[in-house]
Design a protein around this nucleic acid. Structure first.
Lengths: 190, 190
DNA sequence: ACCTGAACACCGTTCAAGT
DNA sequence: ACCTGAACACCGTTCAAGT
């Protein structure tokens, strides 16, 4: 074997699952930094210390890799949002707690908000908000003539817009926006 | 000159401004249908009845063409939203009128909502909402301790999310969502 | 199974050459 | 000025060949 040849086969001390995770982590970071189309397969592979051809051994297309990254990102936020949904006595309290927790998750995982924004994937927030509104309807906190699905969608629309703004505004301006969004949910903005 | 050669020079009866407009219209449609990266320069040029090389005579890069398309799209919606902002006695009435008019604009220009969503550009809605909230603050309809920029951003976030939902939901479900959004603005959802 | 370099068709963009 | 076909570097993806 010539000394100039590149190493072949799986490096010692790494499992297939670890390699997969390394690729997903690299993908989340690169997509957050450069956007979905700006993050090239070659760069993601390089950040995961392999060739683009090797990456295709783990993910058959860029779309499938993105879907796996979206699912991984969701698993980070979902349990925390679920916990937050338990806090608070009233529906408005719970909604505010979930929105606030979503903000904290963004702070703890700096790449996450930019990644979700770049992919435009449905956030775990939708699920949690739907649950809160459903429960509000069961407990009678929602006016009887209000469509619960419509209410969940409206609140979800608000949070989608907030996530988008988070990437556009300064942290200070975004914090002010969040406070107003909470006032809006509590019915005391205007 | 061989009979097989393609025509050269500007076709008779067209001005430079008309050609520019034709390119922009084609760009809006293709981006709405295929997304920003899915809409290729070659396809946009083809839809505008020219070569991609010719298109570069009018726009130096794809980014500049997209910016021009965004500006053109804005000019469609802005006057109508401005008019709607005059209607209604209270702040909530005016906000609801603008949101409703934005919905009608989307219906009148089927490609527009998808295009704005695909480009992620700041919509003319932002400007109009900012004006309404500023006026609300001057007239004292906004609580003194509320940051007016934050309030405008929060309402804008809601409308951005609504626009996104419009593409995802059935017309019926979207209408229910719009009604709940109005209730939310009026402070009587929860 | 896992990895490689080299190739494929396609993209945004450029350019010499035509009218 | 306006348009063309042909080329450029780069992208996602494939593949024969290595261990």
């Amino acid at each position: 074997m010539p000394l100039t040849s590149s190493p072949r086969g799986r490096p010692a001390g790494t499992s297939s699952a670890q390699t997969r995770q390394r690729i997903i982590t690299a993908a989340i970071r690169r997509v957050a930094e450069c956007g979905r189309s700006g993050a090239t397969i070659r760069e993601i592979a390089s950040a995961a210390e392999m060739t683009s051809a090797s990456l295709y051994h783990y993910f058959p297309t860029k779309d499938k890799l993105m879907a796996a990254a979206v699912a991984a990102a969701r698993e980070i936020a979902l349990p925390r949002l679920h916990d937050a949904a338990q806090r608070g006595a009233t529906v408005a309290d719970r909604l505010a707690a979930v929105v606030a927790e979503a903000d904290r998750v963004s702070r703890d995982h700096p790449y996450l908000a930019a990644f979700e924004r770049a992919t435009g994937a449905a956030s775990p927030l939708h699920l949690v908000l739907g649950e809160i509104v459903d429960e509000a309807r069961r407990s009678g906190s929602l006016a009887a003539d209000v469509d619960p699905r419509g209410a969940a969608n409206a609140v979800y629309a608000l949070t989608r817009g907030l996530t988008e703004q988070a990437a556009r505004l300064s942290p200070e301006a975004y914090r002010a926006t969040l406070r107003c969004a909470e006032d809006l949910l509590r019915g005391r903005l205007f």
